[in-house]
């Protein structure tokens, strides 16, 4: 005779075996699946290349696309990402209070955030360093040429400190002028009120590509003052969610390594060229079950968003208005520092 408990447990087992209804182990993922939407961090305005709003009032950018990729991995549909506009100051409290599930917002992995703020970080998906940009007519190539010069920075940022620190290390006398907003800073630099301007590498390159009519009149100095690993931040205590996010990023990188793109993913899944691709695309089982997701999550994600290279090129790289070099943010096999953990 069947007791009620057996029926219930049998039903639960049946549900668990259904494709697309795998029970997640991570409480955060479970919550996202029950809610049916993924809450990601946006910005109160635009942050060039990472978080922007297009002409149709829709979010776009590298960080937004990574959020959409994660949403596809968990919920099977990039449209289920809900972007919550947040200011810089607000992002960590908003994560702790549950206003967002994850912060993917050009956020550097620092010790303070990792320990005191009770966060945990994913694998870095982007590397951006602090650099100087100077007027080309000065004829200098590195920061030693700035002796006695004026450097503009944005007030109250880590860049101000990093720049002062670096210059005292190499012993170059200089004057720092801080400006409250980025727009003011740009205007001051373009009006020749400072010789050089310190900023986050991608921002400088974006500025050089868009704001300045003659890019060759400006040079990004060779000094690398710092390099910040940019990673997704999550609440402490849900290791399984970190696994999901890490393998989501890994799948994007592996797809690029193996040449799996948005366009050819269906074909690749039909006739996988090698066992790694077969596993990645869920032809051979293992990718989904171990994370508590569908076996084909990576295939669906790449079909919706493309691989990491495609996401980069669309938002920052050659298919965007910025035309930013891959540089450090290329695969290890192409001279960059991005690599995926081993898919076994």
């Amino acid at each position: 005779m069947l007791t009620k408990a057996t029926v219930v447990s049998m039903a639960a087992a049946a549900i668990a075996m259904l494709p697309g209804a795998v029970l997640a182990e991570s409480p955060t993922v479970k919550e996202i699946q029950e809610r049916g939407t993924m809450l990601c961090s946006g910005h109160n305005g635009s942050y060039f290349g990472f978080v922007e709003v297009n002409d149709k009032n829709e979010w776009k950018g590298l960080d937004i696309d990574i959020c959409r990729a994660l949403t596809t991995a968990i919920l099977g549909d990039p449209e289920k990402a809900q972007i919550v506009p947040l200011s810089w100051a607000q992002r960590f409290p908003a994560l702790q209070s549950g206003d967002v599930d994850i912060i993917i917002k050009a956020t550097g992995w620092t010790m303070g955030r990792d320990t005191e703020l009770g966060l945990q970080f994913s694998l870095p998906y982007f590397f951006g360093g602090t650099q100087f940009m100077a007027h080309g007519e000065l004829g200098i190539t590195d920061a030693t040429g700035l002796e006695g010069g004026t450097i503009c920075v944005e007030a109250g940022t880590t860049i101000e400190r990093i720049s002062a620190n670096y210059m005292s290390t190499i012993g170059v006398e200089h004057t720092i002028v801080s400006y409250e907003s980025a727009a003011e800073l740009r205007a001051a630099y373009l009006a020749n009120r400072c010789d050089a301007f310190a900023g986050w590498g991608p921002n400088l390159a974006v500025l050089r590509a868009t704001e300045i009519d003659n890019p060759d009149a400006h040079i990004i100095l060779s000094d690398k003052l710092s390099s910040e690993p940019i990673a997704a931040a999550m609440r402490q205590g849900d290791e399984d969610f970190v696994d999901v996010v890490n393998w989501m990023l890994a799948a994007l990188l592996i797809a690029e390594e193996e040449g799996v793109t948005k366009a050819n993913v269906a074909e690749m899944a039909a006739t996988p060229p090698n066992p790694r691709v077969a596993r990645l695309l869920g032809v051979e089982p293992g990718m989904g079950e171990r994370l508590g997701l569908r076996e084909t999550w990576a295939r669906e994600m790449i079909a919706a968003m493309g691989n990491f290279g495609e996401i980069y090129d669309r938002n920052l790289g050659k298919d965007s208005a910025y035309n930013l070099d891959r540089g450090l943010n290329n695969l290890w096999s192409h001279g960059g520092v991005l690599y995926a953990p081993i898919l076994d």
Partner: peptide, 12 residues
């Protein structure tokens, strides 16, 4: 939203 409006490469 004004900041977002000029916050893309095209309109910067």
């Amino acid at each position: 939203s004004a900041k977002a409006a000029f916050g893309t490469g095209e309109w910067a």
